[in-house]
């Protein structure tokens, strides 16, 4: 492997990790609070991508500035979070927090199945490709490699700022502190008068928005097509499990690990590219069942 290929693999890996992190952090945040791992999370990602690619394609074709892609991504993220994620939590998940674990898992699986076909009904089976956002930012040369600014600079910066602002939000704002309190101890939090229902709702919407925003950003770099939600939920689960469930900062490290692992595989052994995330996850879990940053508390008896 030449130095250039090495750099290329690292750039690819970091850009990819940034996207995966956005989705995974939403998943892990939601799990921390609701204690439900939402299988439909991947659908939010796909819908964010579809909205951005289809609306973007339409307005750029109509002659509007490609810079509009960036506000569009933010809007798509928030829109999916509120319009799709909100009702899912309010109408469905809020009714199942008392059910057995198996049934909770199956309910989110059912939502996932429904949203898969909702996407198909709205956007059909044809792939969308809309990379104006990628092109408008141009390229840079690093180590004689020409790479897009969008992937090399923008995506990692977005991921880092989401990580930092999420930290600030959780530690400094009232809502954030409430979320942390419910994550820590649901019973104690509700017994001191925290409105858990509201915390659940807000957390779920934030998590869904992050997934959709990740999809929106991804849409500039890849074709948007059916099945991308299913791939992403498994991938982000791999990240979340590798990090340890509920670990926000850990998700960033695990996303980097998996992103780099995958991009190196692309250059070294392309056949196993798709397997690398799972192999990393299985390897980590084999050694540390609670994940890299997870902790286990023995049940009180």
């Amino acid at each position: 492997m030449t130095l250039q290929l090495l750099a290329l693999a690292i750039f690819d890996g970091v850009a990819y990790a940034a996207l995966v992190f956005l989705v995974a952090v939403g998943l892990t945040l939601t799990f921390g609070v609701l204690k439900v791992l939402n299988i439909a999370h991947g659908s939010f990602y796909a819908m964010g991508a579809y909205i951005t690619a289809s609306i973007g394609g339409a307005i750029f074709a109509a002659g509007f500035s490609p810079w509009l892609a960036f506000p569009l991504m933010l809007i798509a993220g928030a829109l999916v979070g509120i319009v799709v994620g909100g009702p899912v939590e309010k109408l469905l998940l809020s009714r199942i927090y008392e059910l057995e674990d198996v049934l909770q898992i199956l309910v989110t699986f059912a939502v996932f199945l429904i949203l898969e076909d909702v996407q198909r009904l709205i956007w059909g089976g044809q792939p969308f490709f809309e990379s104006s956002a990628l092109q408008v930012l141009g390229t840079v040369d690093v180590f004689d490699i020409t790479y897009t600014v969008y992937q090399l600079i923008l995506l990692p910066m977005v991921a880092i700022s989401v990580l930092v602002s999420l930290r600030l939000f959780l530690r400094r704002t009232l809502m954030g502190k409430l979320i942390l309190a419910v994550t820590e101890d649901r019973e104690a939090a509700t017994s001191v008068g925290i409105n858990a229902e509201r915390v659940y709702f807000v957390t779920f919407v934030i998590g869904a928005s992050l997934a959709a925003f990740g999809g929106a950003l991804a849409s500039a770099t890849t074709s948007v097509l059916p099945g991308m939600g299913a791939d992403m939920i498994v991938l982000s689960f791999a990240v979340v499990a590798t990090a340890g469930l509920g670990r926000v900062e850990g998700a960033a490290v695990a996303a980097l690990l998996i992103g780099l692992g995958r991009s190196f595989a692309v250059y070294l052994w392309p056949e196993i590219e798709v397997l690398v995330p799972y192999l990393i996850m299985l390897f980590v879990l084999l050694i540390r069942p609670e994940g890299l940053f997870g902790t286990t508390h023995p049940r009180k008896i």
Partner: peptide, 20 residues
């Protein structure tokens, strides 16, 4: 055919919530 998964999802929800 186009909404087969959706049908499955809706039935699944119905069974879990109303006829477990």
């Amino acid at each position: 055919n186009d909404i087969w998964k959706m049908v499955l999802g809706v039935v699944l929800l119905g069974v879990i919530l109303y006829a477990p």
